[in-house]
């Protein structure tokens, strides 16, 4: 734990979620456990459909009608928020836990001025007593995320993609939440804008000592901005630990494969590992370890039994055959031809 605070600000225990669909029950999240301390940044990574956005939606209690919570607790400041009624949850949402949505394009209502939308979020939660104080607060938030407060009275279509993403971040910060969930906050943005927004988000997080969860498929982004990383596969958290440790020596073969398949502009050029196969169908997930059909280390025990938890210092993974050392990175031979 980076922060030695006695109780974590967010604690997820045995969370399981499924969606009822035409094809059957989709087991989207299964037995997910993690904790988040004040001021800590956690990254949830995985392929699309691995359940990372579903976890975020559980934390926000924003679930579609066909979602069904099977088990688990989500403690926010020690209070389990899953059994709360819709009215009670509203006090938590935005004020304790807020979300920066994936598509900033859609998160802003095109018919209202951007500043007005943030002001409304503040007023709805009674954070500021008067309209002028609320507007002042929004101006402060705009400055904090690097937007000119004069832009408050513009409409979303007058904003560029990066500016919209900043406005959405300002909205998430509007009620001083303790936890922020950033769901693919920079996916649609160009690298230079992405770089700036990530730097700002990280600066704000450290200044305000907030806890933040980054959800991303881009492990390069997660590597840069997080303290801890959770790797999800087929609805399960398969590896969890300090980011530096996980990147240095992943325990789970999936984590290693994910990292080995990412090209980088730094370091020696190397052959990228092929992660063959497709993610499993979560209506009828594979028996035993969900990764066994794609795993090069898979044996009979992987096919039959749920893998045990292996720990190394602060890092753990659910695997029958955890990786011992740093996977050797082959120097480039054929790459680029």
């Amino acid at each position: 734990m980076t922060a030695s605070a006695a109780s974590p600000v967010l604690k997820v225990v045995d969370l399981s979620l499924r969606y009822l669909t035409r094809g059957g029950e989709v087991k989207a999240v299964q037995d997910v456990n993690f904790e988040l301390a004040q001021g800590e940044a956690l990254g949830l990574v995985g392929e699309s459909g691995c359940g990372k956005t579903s976890v975020a939606n559980c934390l926000m209690r924003l679930l579609p009608d066909n979602a069904q919570l099977v088990a688990g607790q989500v403690f926010l400041d020690g209070q389990d928020i899953l059994p709360l009624s819709e009215d009670q949850i509203r006090e938590y949402r935005w004020q304790r836990i807020a979300m920066v949505f994936q598509a900033a394009m859609n998160a802003l209502d095109p018919v209202y001025k951007v500043g007005q939308q943030v002001v409304e979020a503040i007023e709805a939660h009674g954070v500021e007593p008067t309209l002028s104080l609320a507007r002042e607060r929004v101006a402060g938030l705009f400055r904090m995320v690097g937007l000119d407060p004069a832009l408050m009275d513009r409409y979303p279509h007058e904003f560029s993609g990066g500016m919209r993403q900043r406005a959405v971040i300002a909205m998430a910060l509007s009620c001083d939440p303790r936890v922020i969930i950033a769901d693919e906050p920079t996916t649609a943005l160009d690298v230079i804008v992405q770089d700036r927004i990530l730097r700002e988000l990280k600066g704000i997080q450290q200044r305000l000592h907030m806890a933040i969860i980054y959800i991303s498929h881009d492990i390069a982004v997660v590597a840069e901005v997080t303290d801890r990383i959770g790797v999800m596969y087929a609805g399960r958290l398969v590896e969890y630990g300090p980011t530096a440790a996980v990147f240095r020596a992943p325990l789970h073969p999936y984590t290693a494969a994910l990292m080995g398949s990412f090209p980088s502009i730094a370091g020696e050029k190397r052959v990228l590992a092929n992660l063959s196969g497709e993610p499993p169908n979560l209506i009828d997930p594979p028996s035993g370890c969900p990764f066994h059909p794609r795993c090069v280390h898979a044996t009979d025990v992987c096919r039959q039994e749920i893998p045990p938890r292996v720990e190394r210092d602060d890092q753990w993974a659910d695997c029958w055959h955890p990786l011992e050392e740093v996977p050797s990175l082959q120097p480039a031979k054929a790459g680029g031809t």
């Binding site: 881009d218 990147f247 730094a266």
Partner: peptide
């Protein structure tokens, strides 16, 4: 150079230089 310094690197120990250009596209 600006483009290169903005590309995130999948290595937590790698430190990139500060952004060198201003303004928006």
């Amino acid at each position: 150079r600006a483009l290169l310094s903005a590309v995130p690197v999948p290595n937590p120990e790698y430190r990139r230089g500060p952004p060198s250009i201003v303004g928006d596209l």
